[in-house]
Structure formats: structure tokens, C-alpha cells
Amino acid sequence: MNLTVNGKPSTVDGAESLNVTELLSALKVAQAEYVTVELNGEVLEREAFDATTVKDGDAVEFLY
């Protein structure tokens, strides 16, 4: 899956889609429990991480 992460191209191997929690784990995001996630310009509530799917071509920003 090809994404733009914090403005840079990134690839997650072996996945066509992941939820936000899985993406944080796959990318080994440090202190993931404290990060705010913006997906395609929309800031996500932490409670929505498990239910929100990240797909090929999406833009993700991790805000600390």
C-alpha cells in the first residue's frame, strides 16, 4: 500500500488496507498513544482509529 505520510511517500508492504491502529503499529510510530492522526485532511478522534480504514493513495499526518 502506497501512502503519503507526513508529506513523504511511504509504503506498507503486504497490505491493501489497514485501520489507523494497525497502521500506527506497522509504521512503528513512537508513542502512538499520544499521536493525533489526520487522514486526508480530517483530524480523527482516537475512538475512531479502529473503525477508520486507511487505503492505498491516502495522505496521513501524525501530529505530536
Rank of each mutant, 00 (worst) to 15 (best):
M1N: 02
M1D: 03
M1Y: 04
M1A: 03
M1H: 04
M1Q: 03
N2S: 11
N2K: 13
N2P: 02
N2T: 13
N2H: 13
N2L: 10
N2A: 09
L3S: 02
L3W: 02
T4I: 13
T4M: 12
V5P: 02
V5C: 06
V5N: 01
V5M: 04
V5G: 02
N6P: 02
N6Y: 00
N6Q: 05
N6A: 04
G7W: 03
G7H: 06
G7K: 05
G7V: 02
G7Q: 05
K8R: 11
K8P: 01
K8W: 11
K8D: 06
P9M: 10
P9V: 09
P9T: 08
P9A: 10
P9K: 11
P9G: 06
S10A: 15
S10L: 15
S10H: 15
S10M: 15
S10I: 15
S10Y: 15
T11I: 13
T11A: 08
T11V: 13
V12H: 05
V12F: 11
V12M: 06
V12I: 14
D13L: 14
D13M: 14
D13Y: 15
G14F: 13
G14T: 09
G14L: 08
G14E: 06
G14Q: 07
G14H: 09
A15M: 11
A15L: 10
A15E: 07
A15R: 13
A15C: 13
A15N: 08
A15G: 09
A15V: 15
E16C: 12
E16A: 12
E16I: 13
S17G: 08
L18K: 04
L18V: 07
L18W: 07
L18I: 09
L18M: 14
L18Y: 07
L18A: 03
N19I: 04
N19S: 15
N19K: 06
N19D: 03
N19E: 01
V20T: 01
V20S: 01
V20A: 01
V20D: 00
V20K: 00
V20Q: 00
T21S: 09
T21L: 09
T21A: 08
T21E: 05
T21H: 08
T21G: 05
T21V: 07
T21W: 13
E22N: 08
E22W: 04
L23R: 00
L23Y: 00
L23V: 04
L23G: 00
L23M: 05
L23H: 01
L23E: 00
L24S: 00
L24T: 01
L24W: 00
L24K: 00
L24F: 04
L24I: 09
S25I: 15
S25Q: 14
S25W: 10
S25A: 14
S25T: 12
A26L: 14
A26S: 07
A26I: 14
A26R: 14
A26T: 08
L27M: 07
L27D: 02
L27A: 02
L27I: 05
L27N: 01
K28H: 12
K28E: 08
K28G: 14
V29D: 03
V29F: 06
V29C: 12
V29E: 04
V29A: 04
A30S: 11
A30C: 15
A30K: 11
A30R: 11
A30G: 10
A30W: 13
Q31R: 12
Q31A: 12
A32V: 12
A32D: 09
A32R: 10
A32E: 08
A32M: 11
E33A: 11
E33P: 08
E33V: 06
E33W: 10
E33C: 14
E33F: 08
E33N: 10
E33R: 09
Y34K: 09
Y34S: 10
Y34I: 12
Y34D: 08
Y34T: 10
Y34C: 15
Y34E: 08
Y34Q: 09
V35S: 03
V35E: 03
T36Q: 10
T36I: 14
T36Y: 08
T36S: 07
V37K: 00
V37D: 00
V37R: 00
V37N: 00
V37G: 01
V37C: 04
V37H: 00
V37A: 02
E38G: 07
E38V: 15
E38Q: 15
L39G: 00
L39F: 05
L39I: 08
N40M: 02
N40V: 01
N40I: 03
N40S: 00
N40P: 00
N40D: 01
G41N: 04
G41M: 04
G41P: 01
G41H: 05
G41E: 01
G41F: 04
E42N: 11
E42S: 11
E42C: 13
E42D: 07
E42P: 01
E42A: 10
E42I: 15
E42V: 15
V43I: 12
V43N: 05
V43E: 06
V43M: 10
V43F: 08
L44N: 00
L44Y: 04
L44E: 00
L44R: 02
L44H: 02
E45F: 09
E45P: 13
R46S: 06
R46G: 04
R46N: 06
R46D: 01
R46E: 04
E47H: 11
E47M: 09
E47V: 08
E47W: 12
E47T: 11
A48R: 11
A48P: 00
A48G: 06
A48C: 13
A48N: 12
A48T: 08
A48M: 12
F49D: 02
F49M: 04
F49I: 02
F49G: 03
D50V: 06
D50K: 06
D50N: 10
D50G: 09
A51S: 14
A51Y: 14
A51P: 02
A51E: 10
A51L: 13
A51Q: 13
T52S: 05
T52D: 00
T52P: 00
T53L: 14
T53R: 13
T53Y: 15
T53F: 15
V54F: 03
V54W: 00
K55M: 07
K55E: 05
K55P: 01
D56V: 05
D56Y: 05
D56S: 12
G57K: 05
G57D: 04
G57S: 03
G57A: 04
G57W: 03
D58C: 06
D58T: 03
D58P: 01
D58A: 04
D58L: 03
A59K: 14
A59S: 14
V60I: 13
V60L: 12
V60E: 02
V60W: 03
V60C: 06
V60G: 02
V60R: 00
E61Y: 13
E61I: 12
E61G: 05
E61W: 15
F62Q: 02
F62I: 15
F62C: 06
F62D: 05
F62E: 04
F62K: 03
F62L: 13
L63G: 13
L63P: 05
L63M: 11
Y64F: 10
Y64S: 11
Y64K: 08
Y64R: 07
Y64G: 09
